[in-house]
Structure formats: structure tokens, C-alpha cells
Simulated assay, not measured.
Amino acid sequence: MSEFVIVPPTVPSVAVHGQAARFPLRRVFCVGRNYADHAREMGHDPDREPPFFFGKPADAIVPATGTIAYPPLTSDFHHEVELVVAIGTGGANISTEQALEHVWGYGVGVDLTRRDLQTIAKKQGRPWDWAKGFDASGPVTALHPVSETGHPDDARIWLSVNGEIRQQGSLADQIWSVAEVISDLSTSVALQPGDLIFTGTPAGVSALKPGDVVEGGIDGLDSFRFTIGATAR
């Protein structure tokens, strides 16, 4: 007799560059307003309002390739390209000096956002779940072990739509470094192997429509290309 009353779901996972084995996902954390220029374009003061955290379901993470359906319930669907950190060693109250020892690897992701739903949620003081945590809202490239990439801290990060650059910046522009993000997050929750962290996006976020070809990457790490499909049913 099974110990579960229904068939348990498949463990969400992300591909690993050059390996058949995959990186299993536990939780997905995202940093808000971690680039000053993006904070300003969203109407906030980065000097007064430090970054904060929100989440996505682990099964919202999909490969950053092929076709990704335009989601329902929105007419203002935005892209946000980000450095993604994969946690390999857990811990709580991790010091900034030791934080990078907990990193397994890095990838490039896109925090897809139903901006109109986010705007409504902000005005009503409600959570952002429907704006950030819908199906396929987190395309991610294959992860690269830190032994291959080191810790990228000043590489160019970029995204284009139909060949036109929309977002471009440097990881050095982050308000909080990867080490600081890990350290701060670990004071609120005990990080565990399999956790994924989206570390924020530079300015230039804007709307996507069906048929758009989205490309982007981080120099020296990885790149991606996917197409926005018809509205999901």
C-alpha cells in the first residue's frame, strides 16, 4: 500500500550544463528592487527602500528555451532578466563572509510578471502571488557549477526582444551583492540545498506579446532564447 493517498508530484528540477543529472528544486526566492535604476523606474527610492523578498512556486521554473505561453488574466506581461543562484549547502544566520561557500552554481533566469495584476495588488495591499507565481513564470537556463564559473560579480546582464536591447546593466550595479542577499535571507529562513534565488533585475522592463522572441544572458555565464506563444488556456 502506498504511503500517499494520491500519486506524489514530480520533483521540480533545473538542468545542469554538461550533465545528465539535474539540480532538484526546493524553494524559489526572489529579490525585489536590487538595482537602483529599476527601483526608480518602478517609482521607488532605492536609497530609502532596500530590497525585499518574495517567492515563486518551484514548479513555475521552466527551461528558458522553446515556446512559453502568454499567461491568462493579463494584458501587461513583463520580462525581468536576473542572475540566479543555486544553493548547495544550507544554513541559518549565515555571515556575509561565509555566504558564497553555500553556492552550488549560477544560471540566468527571467522573472516573468503580470504587471497589471501586480499594480492592482500593490494598490490593494495584497500579496503578489498571482502577479509573480503563475505557471511557467520563471524560465531558467541550465545551471553552471561554481567550480566552472567562479562567482560572477561584474559581468554584463542583458535582454533583447526581437533583436532590440531592452535591458542592459552590470552585476556590479546590484544594491545587495549575492553574499549579502544570502546572508540577509538566511536570517529569516533556514536555507536548504535546492533553494534557488533570483537576485533582481536592471532597468528596462517592458511588455511582451505573442510572437516576441526573447533573448538574453550574462556574459561569461550563459544565454537563452525563447518565444512567447499564444495565450495559455
Rank of each mutant, 00 (worst) to 15 (best):
I120W: 11
G204I: 11
T149S: 07
L143G: 01
P127W: 12
I120Q: 11
R126L: 15
G150H: 02
E148A: 02
I165W: 06
W158S: 14
L196D: 01
L196F: 01
G150Y: 02
L185P: 02
V146F: 02
G138I: 05
Q174E: 08
A179T: 04
T96P: 04
P152G: 15
W176I: 09
Q167D: 15
Q192A: 15
R166L: 15
A136Y: 01
L143D: 00
V110N: 14
H144R: 00
H144E: 00
R156H: 15
P193C: 05
G105I: 00
Q124C: 09
T96S: 11
A207T: 15
T113M: 09
S183R: 12
G169Q: 09
L112V: 06
A172F: 13
S147L: 00
Q124L: 13
A172T: 08
Q98N: 15
Q118T: 12
G150W: 03
H151P: 14
A136K: 02
Q168W: 11
Q167V: 12
G133I: 07
D129R: 06
L196K: 01
P193K: 04
D116G: 09
A179K: 01
Q174N: 08
T201H: 08
I120C: 06
P139Q: 06
W128T: 05
E148Q: 02
L112K: 04
A155Y: 05
H102N: 02
Q174K: 09
P202V: 14
E97P: 03
V108M: 13
P202I: 09
R126M: 11
T187D: 13
K123N: 07
W104M: 02
G109N: 06
A190M: 09
L196E: 01
D116Q: 11
L185C: 04
V146C: 03
Q192I: 09
P127N: 04
